[in-house]
Amino acid sequence: MNINATLLGQTIMFAMFVWFCMKFVWPPIMAALEARKKQIADGLAAAERGKLDMELAAKRAADILREAKDKAAEIISHGDKRASEIIEEAKAKAEVEASNILERANSEIEQEVFRAKEQLRTQVSAIALAGAGKILSREIDAKAHNDLLEKLVAEI
């Protein structure tokens, strides 16, 4: 337990160990720790950002979905309206067509009636002429009295 040169040796060794530790041990480990701390902080920030982005995207998706639904409803109602319009149009057209057909038929019938009357009249006048001819026999020359007869027919 004497004090001797061991003391100096120990001091020198101590200084060398501290120097080595200060030069080659502490800085790299501290740097790694700092770098990891930064990495973790960055990672957390990125995760936070990602979460925010996801929320935004979900909101946007919901918006788009709602818009699409609105549009679809609009299109459907538009279609319904158009369909009823078409039906109305068709109905109106059909009515017009029907009245046209009816009119045409009526006019045809009228013409037919007129023609029949005409025919009847000519036939009646012919019969009357024939009857009168028979009655008058030779007295009446068909050629001589033709204009008279025609006047008669027109009167009938």
Partner: peptide
């Protein structure tokens, strides 16, 4: 045990 030698502890304390 080096720390039971006063030379060692005094050496470090001197540092």
């Amino acid at each position: 045990v080096p720390s039971t030698d006063p030379n060692a502890t005094i050496g470090m304390a001197i540092g």
